[in-house]
Simulated scan of single mutants.
Amino acid sequence: MKPSDDFQAPGLELFQFPPLWPGAPYWLTKPTLMAGVGALLVCVLLWAAFAHPRLVPRGLQNIAEMGYVFVRDQAARPFLGKDADRWMGLLLSIFLLSWIWNLMGVIPLVQLPVSSFLAYPAVIAFTVYVVKIYVGVRAQGARGYVGNLIPRGLPKLTYVLLIPLELLQNFVTSLFTHMLRLAANMFAGHVILAFFSAVGFWFLFERPTLLGVPLGALGVLMAIVMTGFEMFIQFLQAYLFVLLTAMFIGSSLNPEH
């Protein structure tokens, strides 16, 4: 058997896309298009749900209000308290956008989780980072904001190590943790789904053999199971993404918490 006839597991080529047409800008690729579609979809859904709200919600408004209540009660209020409602527009939009970007990984014909490309969650995470610092300085003053990052009442020698670590965590690693958590999980999930799908297709259709067909059937079964599991992870990661957003903003507004 020639090497070209061997099964090749999918790899980084899953995330490499040329421009949409010859001569198009290098950045105008399928992920860019899907990111824009996702943002437009969020705007359309929220407009359709809340442009003419009813006292007794029905249809899309009812579904949207369920999402609103979920984000408000599970992310905003625990960290923002009385300020939760002021930030719900931002938080709900981030939750829906990241969730839709994630779900694109299991939508037929699209099958591309936009969030697995680091640049897209990075834009949101950096925006949250700027907002966090801005509201912290505005609420506490620059000196108070930086000063309140450091716990008080500890032995003096502790601060030699603690101060650099706290500043590093708040001004550097929090940004990267925010965006990498989402991107890494979506990247790994997409590769896993692609692997099991490729196993099923290869051993059932490309190179069916007596021993290979059961392996291909197992690959298809695992692809189905992992798709269901991945949809749960997609929701969970969108929730954690907006939870961290609320936590960062809340810590700047209410340092005592």
Rank of each mutant, 00 (worst) to 15 (best):
L165C: 09
L103Q: 09
G67C: 15
Y159D: 12
P108F: 01
E65A: 03
R152N: 03
L154R: 13
T173N: 13
Y134H: 09
A76M: 04
L80T: 05
A119H: 07
P121Y: 08
S98P: 03
A183I: 02
A142C: 10
V106I: 14
L165Y: 15
I124F: 08
P78L: 14
V160Y: 05
V71Y: 09
F126E: 11
I63N: 04
G105K: 02
V128R: 09
L109R: 03
I94L: 11
I100A: 00
A142H: 09
L60K: 09
S174T: 09
P108I: 00
A125P: 02
S93C: 06
I163M: 15
E166C: 11
V69G: 08
V106S: 13
V137W: 14
W87A: 10
M179K: 01
F171H: 09
V106W: 06
R72M: 12
P113F: 06
N170C: 06
R72Y: 13
M179H: 03
G67R: 11
R86L: 13
V110M: 07
D73G: 05
R77D: 10
F117N: 03
V110D: 05
L167Q: 13
L109M: 06
R143W: 06
Y145D: 04
A139H: 07
N62W: 06
W99P: 01
L162N: 04
M66A: 15
T158A: 10
G136S: 07
R143K: 08
A119V: 15
W101C: 04
V110A: 09
L182P: 01
L118K: 10
S174H: 05
V130T: 12
L91K: 01
F95R: 02
L103R: 07
V172K: 08
A125H: 04
F117E: 04
R152G: 00
K132Q: 05
R77I: 15
F95G: 02
V130G: 10
V69M: 09
I133L: 13
Q111P: 04
M88F: 06
A142I: 13
V123P: 05
N148D: 07
A139Q: 12
T177H: 07
R86D: 11
P164D: 10
I124W: 08
R86H: 10
L168I: 11
R72C: 05
Y120E: 10
L149K: 12
V110P: 02
K82I: 15
G153D: 14
L180P: 03
Q169S: 15
N102I: 04
I133R: 11
T127Q: 10
L180S: 10
E65L: 13
V69R: 15
V131N: 02
N62Q: 09
L118S: 12
R152V: 05
K156E: 14
G153T: 13
L60V: 14
L109Y: 03
I163F: 12
